[in-house]
């Protein structure tokens, strides 16, 4: 029924990178846990089991546990991904988990993506800019159905941070806004309700911390859990920003 291996239960060995920066005694180290695999077991189930039954101090973040909210991104066997929707049956008997790099570490597998995302949003002024005085009692402004769908496609980003964890530029430039930031600007640019023009966006992303920092290594797109076409968006934005720089006004 579940497409799950129904064969003999495996004994899983999970190596977790542990470190609690709050604790002066703590040093980064790998710790190994073992548990019996259960049918349909996800890393969400496995990690909670370890915390409930083996080590109550283990830190990690889950919220929706359904692949929707983006809280639980971590390195799973070295690759950024959402732990909640990763079935252990899709992994080997020995699994390595580490926190997402690039972001501030809170402890063990928990990182502060929220703080980074808020700072990025402030820096990129990542909200619909409009001075229209909308009368809420009147019919809403019309939008072409296809345009609404296109905007939604870009809006599907869940700010999980996987793209930055897989990004070559982010490794070198800590102020790089990443695919998440560039995608957000592409989304706002597409939206007729945002009254800004390319020259305004250029001010925000027309440098090496923005769209010109990307080295087109494709890491972001490879790992994006929502399968967003990030490289296409970045390439498109780069052309638009170049145009804005070369032909202002």
């Amino acid at each position: 029924m579940t497409g799950q291996g129904e064969g003999a239960a495996r004994r899983l060995t999970i190596d977790i990178l542990r470190y609690n920066p709050q604790d002066p005694e703590s040093r980064p180290h790998m710790e190994t846990f073992e548990l019996d695999e259960a049918p349909s077991m996800t890393l969400f189930v496995a990690l909670n089991d370890i915390r409930d039954r083996q080590d109550p101090s283990l830190q990690f973040d889950f919220v929706c546990r359904a692949g929707i909210c983006g809280s639980c991104a971590m390195l799973i066997d070295g690759r950024p991904g959402l732990a909640c929707r990763t079935l252990t049956s899709s992994l080997g008997e020995r699994i390595t988990l580490a926190p997402l790099p690039f972001f501030e570490l809170i402890g063990d597998l928990s990182v502060n993506t929220g703080k980074w995302m808020r700072a990025m949003s402030e820096r990129l002024e990542a909200w619909v800019h409009s001075d229209a005085d909308v009368d809420l009692t009147r019919l809403e402004a019309r939008m072409e159905p296809e345009l609404a769908e296109q905007i939604y496609e870009l809006e599907r980003c869940i700010e999980c941070g996987c793209c930055l964890a897989a990004c070559g530029t982010a490794r070198m430039r800590e102020d790089f806004v990443g695919a998440v930031g560039l995608n957000k600007i592409a989304r706002l640019r597409l939206d007729p309700r945002d009254q800004r023009e390319d020259a305004d966006y250029y001010e925000l992303i027309g440098d090496d911390d923005g769209v010109f920092g990307c080295m087109s290594l494709l890491g972001c797109q490879d790992v994006c859990p929502k399968e967003l076409g990030l490289q296409t968006q970045i390439a498109y934005m780069r052309r638009k920003m170049l145009r804005a720089a070369l032909f202002p006004g």
């Binding site: 909308v134 809403e140 939206d191």
Partner: peptide, 16 residues
């Protein structure tokens, strides 16, 4: 209806 129209103005790409 007012709430949904406000959200539309704030950028929610409601299906049309």
């Amino acid at each position: 209806p007012k709430a949904i129209r406000e959200l539309a103005a704030w950028g929610v790409p409601w299906s049309r």
